[in-house]
């Protein structure tokens, strides 16, 4: 990477991070509040009645990985879709399009900003969870890799959404009608092994299931899916969405007339 591209990448990333910190009440605080409510309601109140999900793992411990993943997914997706669409709507995306920056630098900068927000939110939610549970990291590397890959996948998906979006409604539809069902049905609150056929088989078509379970493997050491398959799904999605994003940027779809 040339020095100029490195400076440009740093500039886009820095601008994104400054935006996240400037409006922290909209970017970091909501997840802290929502997840605290989940821990209180589903963890302590309902969880006590459910009992253990696996030997030595109570319900509140079981849902921690899924809730962190849920926060990472919604924050990464929301960050890049609203920020990039905002730059299109306010036309300041032209600052970047008319600059010498290649498309991959623009994309990497936005993705880096969104991933950093995802990581910040993951740390916040993990810290909150420690007030309710006493979980310990089983596989730190798998945990970190899962967070980063999930964050990259949903940042790229948010970017594609922003490229095609023509109005703010277009970036609100996907989180409501696609992301929410995928996360809630992705094994955040339950094990897919508890589902009967065909719901169990259908659940395996949901990519969020692999992310949640890979993360659960990292945090708790248990998973409903093989770790290798989970990472293959995440890497595959990242490659496909990354290639699509770069293609859209190169062609100027939704950006250049």
């Amino acid at each position: 990477m040339s020095g100029e591209n490195l400076v440009a990448l740093g500039t886009v990333t820095r601008r994104e991070v400054m935006r996240i910190l400037r409006i922290w009440t909209q970017t970091l605080l909501p997840s802290a509040i929502t997840m605290t409510l989940y821990f209180v309601i589903f963890g302590t109140m309902i969880g006590r009645r459910i009992g253990e999900m696996a030997p030595g793992i109570g319900y509140i411990d079981y849902i921690v990985p899924g809730l962190i993943m849920m926060a990472v997914i919604t924050n990464c997706y929301g960050n890049i879709s609203s920020s990039f669409f905002g730059s299109k709507f306010g036309r300041y995306v032209e600052e970047m399009l008319a600059s010498p920056m290649p498309g991959w630098v623009i994309l990497s900068g936005y993705v880096a900003g969104a991933v950093l927000r995802g990581v910040m939110v993951a740390i916040i939610v993990l810290a909150i969870s420690l007030a309710f549970t006493d979980i310990h990291l089983h596989h730190p590397l798998a945990t970190l890799a899962t967070v980063l890959l999930t964050a990259i996948v949903f940042s790229l998906a948010g970017f594609v959404n922003a490229v095609f979006a023509q109005k703010f409604d277009d970036i609100a539809l996907v989180p409501t009608f696609v992301l929410a069902p995928l996360t809630y049905l992705g094994g955040v609150f339950y094990s897919v092994n508890a589902l009967g056929s065909p719901w169990r088989e259908i659940s395996y078509a949901n990519p969020v299931l692999y992310m949640v379970n890979a993360f659960r493997h990292g945090l708790l050491g248990i998973s409903d899916v093989p770790l290798g398959v989970a990472f293959a799904v995440m890497v595959g999605l990242a490659v496909v969405l990354g290639a699509l994003s770069l293609y859209l940027l190169k062609r100027g779809v939704g950006l250049r007339s």
């Binding site: 040339s2 020095g3 100029e4 591209n5 490195l6 400076v7 440009a8 740093g10 500039t11 886009v12 820095r14 601008r15 400054m18 600052e95 970047m96 600059s99 010498p100 920056m101």
Partner: peptide, 13 residues
């Protein structure tokens, strides 16, 4: 910030 970022897009330290 608008000016500094613009320079950054051009690779200016």
């Amino acid at each position: 910030d608008i000016c500094v970022n613009q320079a950054g897009f051009y690779g200016i330290p």
